[in-house]
Structure formats: C-alpha cells, structure tokens
Write a protein that binds this DNA or RNA. Structure first.
Lengths: 231, 231
DNA sequence: CACAATTACTGATATATATCAACCAAGTTA
DNA sequence: TAACTTGGTTGATATATATCAGTAATTGTG
C-alpha cells in the first residue's frame, strides 16, 4: 500500500471528476500538486467506516465496493466505485469521519486528493461548489431508486436489476465478468448467497443468461428487464 | 390552497432554516420579499413527484410526509417534515423536477421561497453554499441509516425505531399522538398495515407501550431500545 | 343524530426467503 | 502429494411476513 507522488497531470487525465472541469487551470494545478497515488490488490481496504476523512479518493483504474457494515457482520453494498467518480462520503461536511467502508474489488490504482484543498475551492469557485452539490444530489437520487428496489422488489427483480446495472452501466457489454462473489452479490441485493445462486440458476434455466463461474452473458435482455419491473 | 404574501419577517422567524443564518441581512431581506405562504389541510398534496421544482418549501407549522411512490401504488415514506427543515429534493440541482411527493399530515402552513433566488446565493455567498452542502449531507447520512434499518432489521425492530424517532426526535416526549395512520406507519417501516397493528399490540401486551387510538405512551423505553438493536 | 365511509383490528392461510447441514471443486499451503 | 481452505452448490426445513376475508370501531357529513 505504498503512497507516492507521481508526475502525470490532472489536466490531461481522462478519468478526472467532471466537477474538475469547473476549476481554472491554476486551481487544477494545485490539485495536481497535492495528489498521491496508492495501489491496492483485490480485497484490500482503502478506508474504513469511522476513520477520519482526510482525502477524497478517485480511482485511476479498477473497481471498488462501497458498503455499510451492518448488523451481525452483514454488509450492505451501496455502490460500485469506478474511475471518474469521487468517493467521499457525507461525513466530509459533517464530522470528517467516513460513514462507509471502501475496498478494492480488482487491482486498483487510487488517487488521493486532500479534502481541505477541495473544500477550500468551495469558497473561491462557486461553479465548483455547485458542481459538488450536483454530484451529491445525483448520489441521493440513486439512493432513492435503490431504496425502492431493495424494499419493494422481490429477489428475482433485485438480482435482475443488478445484472442490468453491470451490463449497461458498468461494462456497457452484454457479456462480462461479475466483479462480485455470490456472497457480495447478496450483500448488494440484500439476499442470502444461497438465494443468489438459486435465482441465477433459474435465469440460466430460463435461458435469460448464460453463466460460467464469474462470466455472465445476457441472452434475453427483454425478459431480464421484464423481471426488473414486476419483480 | 390560497397563496398570499404576508408581512411577517424572516429575520425574526423562530423556525427558519439554519442555513439562513449564513445570509447577510440584505440577502435575508430578499428572501423575505420573495416569500409566499399557503395553508393545507391533512392529506392535501403540497407537491407531487415529477412536477417542476420552482420553490423550496419550509413548514411554518404542522407536519408533512415525504414519500416515494413505488410499485403497485405502494408508498415508501422517507421522512417526516417539520418546521425548520428545508424541503427541496435532489432534483433541484439535476432536472428541476421533484423526485418525491410531499403531503400534509396535519394542518400545515408552508412557506414557499423561489429556488432561483436560493440557488443564486450559492454564487454570491460561499458560506451559504457550504451550508447547503451540509444540509444535503445530513440527509444522505440519515438515508444510510434508514437503508440499513429497512433492509437488516425485522419488523419489531423497524417499528420500535419509528416509535423512538417520534418520541425523541419529533415530539421530545414519551407520550404523543401518532402523526401517521397504521397504513402510513407501514409505509414508513416497509410493512403491511396488519403487521403494524399486530406488533403494536405485542408491544402493548408486553407493557412496553400504552396505546389508545393514535395516542401512544412509551412505558418501557429501555426495552423498546433493546428491540431497536437486536430486531 | 343517523348514515356512509374510512380506518382499525383479527384469524386463517399462503409465500418469499433465510437458515442449516451437507457436499464439491479449485486453488493454496504444509 | 495430502491436508486445508475458500467459494460455490444443493436440498430440507424453519420463519418472517404478506395476503385475504372478514368484523368492529371511529370519524366525517348531510
């Protein structure tokens, strides 16, 4: 978990946070000069619930999982982190503590940027402040949608939603390797791992997906979306 | 639902949004001059999901419910609105559409303030912008807690949580009138109204609460909190 | 006040889903 | 290579919870 400065530039970064477009070149330069990279292997923790929020984190490459540590060690995955997202929880503006845990799902290169610098821009660049409000608002909106999914849909619907999410949002491909284990897929859809396995098998039997270990191919997207809706 | 200007002042309003403390007197005066009041009776809709967000809403008196309209007409109440809160959803910064429905639970006097004015202050008063970020962040944090509650606790735990919420947060009293019907209590805790009734009765039988229609008295708060934790 | 319309309540039943206890396959370590 | 671990899988069973079909109690209204 070595943290070391690196001299590539934020100004030509293809994965930079969209809100950085609101910064002036000089401001972006400040960000770039206060930037640190760290590498993680699958499963490694990037930060834990309760720890202090000193930096915002941006993935340069790889995927991470963001989850709440719940009751009796049962986790609830609230999101999959990918490059171009900012990972900094609500604690940033409240108690400077993390309110979720963030771990690597794949090999990850993460970029750390000091939060005091980013928070400082709120007072000097109002477009940036508004961009941050937009960013948080989008996450809140996704949260609403997710809350409805988890509380009002039955298991097949929740699982189908997550497959559609992986296919359309994360990989933009009808074929992909699941980034989550069966247990984690359960943590994501709020179901037991045994139920995940059984319902994935049902999808396979009904020729909605093909599956080989972590490899998934969505064969009948229409049927899958139908299950999303009434499930 | 008459909307009419009124000449009481925001500067001495006991229920004003805490973020208005960050405004200069002249700015607060602008707010005050662009303020409209409306009265609602219990059950009346203040705004609907999908409608345009033209104003932020602040309750002067009364209580409201904020809810998502879910599948098959099943609602999910995501919060109870009370004076001093700002009610303006994530749509404010995204698509200028409401993403939840807001209705009156009691007689309500609501204050409407034009969102373009409030959003304008983000660019002229950075403390105000930061205050808004803090406000949204607090709501996001509550959302996390709520998500865990709804997904990981069993019915008695969820119902106990809501009773503790009413007692400690909303009324600050061990005795109170439920602001929600049994059906709405179900919408709040994600359970069927019949289950709400049964479990309330269990609490009564176990002498944890006393109950007469909407009147609730919490007799054994320790036991109730115990149920919150392991339920 | 009487009537209608909600809302609250009750018991029987159905169902979704978790839990438990195995077993298997593949990779890892001794 | 054998023992171990880890994640995946399966079937049997338990349980939480919803649904349905009524009845009773409140509340609103002409």
């Amino acid at each position: 978990m070595e943290i070391s400065p690196k001299d590539c530039s934020c100004s030509n970064c293809p994965n930079r946070w969209s809100n950085f477009n609101n910064l002036a070149p000089a401001e972006l330069e400040i960000v770039c000069q206060n930037r640190y990279e760290a590498k993680y292997k699958p499963g490694e923790t990037i930060f834990k619930t309760g720890s202090p929020t000193s930096s915002a984190i941006f993935l340069v490459s790889g995927l991470g999982k963001v989850y709440l540590e719940g009751i009796d060690g049962k986790n609830l995955i609230i999101g999959i982190a990918q490059p171009s997202m900012m990972i900094a929880g609500p604690g940033t503006f409240i108690d400077t503590r993390h309110h979720f845990t963030f771990t690597a799902l794949t090999d990850v290169v993460a970029c750390f940027i000091d939060l005091s610098i980013l928070k400082g821009f709120i007072h000097t660049n109002t477009k940036f402040a508004e961009g941050w409000l937009i960013d948080i608002s989008k996450k809140a909106l996704e949260g609403h949608y997710r809350l409805l999914n988890l509380t009002q849909k039955k298991m097949p619907g929740r699982l189908a939603e997550s497959l559609v999410y992986f296919s359309e949002k994360l990989y933009k491909n009808s074929e992909f390797d699941l980034p989550l284990s069966r247990q984690e897929l359960g943590d994501f859809t709020n179901m037991a791992k045994e139920s995940v396995i059984r319902i994935l098998k049902e999808f396979e039997d009904d020729q909605i997906i093909e599956m080989q270990n972590q490899r998934i191919r969505i064969v009948d997207k229409d049927k899958l979306k139908l299950i999303c809706n009434n499930g």
